[in-house]
């Protein structure tokens, strides 16, 4: 059998993940995380009398803490196995990407283990997130100079 023929056979025989099911669970779990964020924000504003801007920051901090905690007790990856992109995209996914290698590489020491490996997964998000924000800033500046945005 030729390689191309074999690759077609492999494609036919390999069980695929269901796109509809994956999207549904990503929406459900990702949406639930966002709903939790909104609930926290309301609690901070209404019950704790915290200004809206600061409440937003507190929500981020709370979700990051919660994600790190759930990663630490070995629960986050189980939720992510079902939630997929729904747990990857929110800020909780970033916290999980930082905490999980820290847990894994602590045996290799603080300096050569935890330090460099901390960003082994999240490094791309940091690098390209920063680059994207620069591009966004330039576009925003141009649009502002042209009077399109305020």
């Amino acid at each position: 059998m030729r390689a191309e023929e074999y690759q077609r056979l492999v494609y036919q025989k390999t069980e695929k993940n269901s796109l509809v099911k994956d999207c549904f669970f990503a929406f459900l779990i990702g949406g639930s995380i966002c709903l939790l964020g909104e609930c926290l924000k309301t609690v901070y504003i209404v019950l704790c009398n915290i200004p809206e801007e600061k409440a937003g920051i507190l929500v981020s901090v709370s979700l990051v803490f919660l994600s790190a905690f759930l990663t630490g007790i070995g629960v986050y990856d189980k939720i992510a196995r079902v939630g997929g992109a729904g747990t990857l995209v929110p800020i909780t996914g970033f916290a999980n990407a930082v905490v999980s290698p820290v847990m894994e590489f602590r045996i290799e020491g603080m300096v050569l283990g935890i330090g460099p490996k901390m960003f082994s997964v999240a490094g791309s998000v940091v690098a390209y997130g920063t680059a994207a924000s620069v591009v966004y800033g330039v576009i925003y500046y141009i649009l502002m100079r042209c009077g399109v945005v305020g």
Binding site: E15, T71, D77, I79, A80, R81, V99, S100, M103, E104
Partner: peptide, 17 residues
């Protein structure tokens, strides 16, 4: 896992295959 894929507690989705 940690040599070939992701850290154990990282929330990655495994393909069916």
């Amino acid at each position: 896992e940690r040599q070939f894929r992701f850290p154990l507690e990282y929330g990655a989705v495994r393909p069916r295959s």
